[in-house]
Nucleic acid binder design. Structure first.
Lengths: 201, 201
DNA sequence: TTAATTTTATTAACAGTGTTAACAAAAGTA
DNA sequence: TACTTTTGTTAACACTGTTAATAAAATTAA
């Protein structure tokens, strides 16, 4: 009796159609405004059927997060295989990572919990300038005593802030882990590398 | 007639009490679960009065974001003033930035739109391991051909990922700006710095 | 084919959310 | 005291995620 098999297949298809409708939603209006009701509407079923296939909304987002990491990993592996030297590989991976993030913004934001609300917010905040100013002026002073007085100030500032923010937010995602001392080590490592290359380049 | 003055003062106080109640909420349950109704409850007024002082919920969060950047800027300025050498200043600022982020998590998450949903999500995702593996293995290979074979692999991996994620997410926040080429330059700069220090240290 | 059972889908509700229109009460002014 | 303005409340609208009760359909057993 192929009935059981067909049923399983149909369930799978149904599940896929939910994800498809959900992803369309995400691509259209961002994952912030994804709603169970809109998905139900799109697939022309009532709301509770969705709960037969996913425990809750979070489970749907989790699915996309998984997909995202899988796609990213594939891409990085592929790109890596195009080179032999580790240095070139690291460079290629970095570029691919960057491209992935911007070619699949919705995935990336989901994967790393970027909440965007701040996006519109942050750009209308004068107070941010004070922070920027402290950093930029200090970097300017560093460049002034460095071996490369022509270094691009804004670029270096941007790199500095990005490193800091990256360290912090990755750390916040992996919330549990590591004692304080180990975390501080990572910070030391990244920043001393930046400073060294800033002064000596 | 001091009536007008008193009224202004009262309005100010009311506004402050809203923010106070809201902030208590944020500290208790995270900014995700801040709600106008809970604020109204806390200050023992009806909901719409809040809209006499803030255009909407976003405006309240914006206020906190502002506060956050102001506090951070103050801290960084202060810390900077304790040193003369730019290199030391950059290091001190980095440490202070780090401390601020973890001493005032709620502020930091608000300021940079960290959405936490992913926090619980990301830690239950096997697929992430593939990405991690690609990066770690490549860095291991790089260390193997470097001048410091004893370099801490996991630390270097963490730095690498943090730099990438930091670059991406800062870029996403400042969404508009800069042409593609300039952005790529920032990536190149940060990554080549990392690789150089990895190979030559 | 009919009867019993299991699976699947729907309606309707609960408990929240942000926001606002209509109205009542208090405070200030003439 | 009468009028005007400010301030506050009630009640609703339009959403959200989630679920209990129930109807309908599909499958199995007799």
């Amino acid at each position: 009796m192929g009935i059981a098999e067909r049923k399983i297949r149909q369930r799978e298809e149904f599940r896929a159609s939910i994800l498809e409708a959900a992803w369309l939603q995400v691509l259209t209006d961002g994952w912030q405004s994804l709603s169970i009701r809109k998905i139900a509407d799109a697939i022309e079923y009532s709301v509770p059927v969705i709960y037969n296939h996913f425990e809750n909304k979070e489970a749907i987002l989790l699915e996309f997060t998984r997909e995202g990491f899988q796609k990213l990993a594939e891409t990085l592996e592929q790109v890596k295989s195009h080179h032999r030297e580790p240095a070139l590989q690291l460079e290629a991976i970095a570029n691919a990572y960057w491209d992935f993030a911007f070619d699949h913004k919705e995935y990336y934001q989901l994967m790393f919990g970027l909440g965007i609300p701040a996006c519109e917010r942050v750009n209308q905040i004068a107070e941010m300038k004070s922070m920027t100013t402290v950093m930029i002026s200090t970097i300017a002073a560093a460049i002034a005593v460095s071996n490369d007085k022509q270094a691009n100030l804004f670029l270096k500032y941007h790199t500095y802030l990005s490193i800091l923010h990256g360290l912090v937010s990755i750390q916040m995602i992996e919330k549990a882990g590591k004692p304080d001392e180990d975390k501080r080590l990572i910070l030391q490592d990244a920043i001393s590398g930046f400073i060294k290359s800033l002064l000596a380049s």
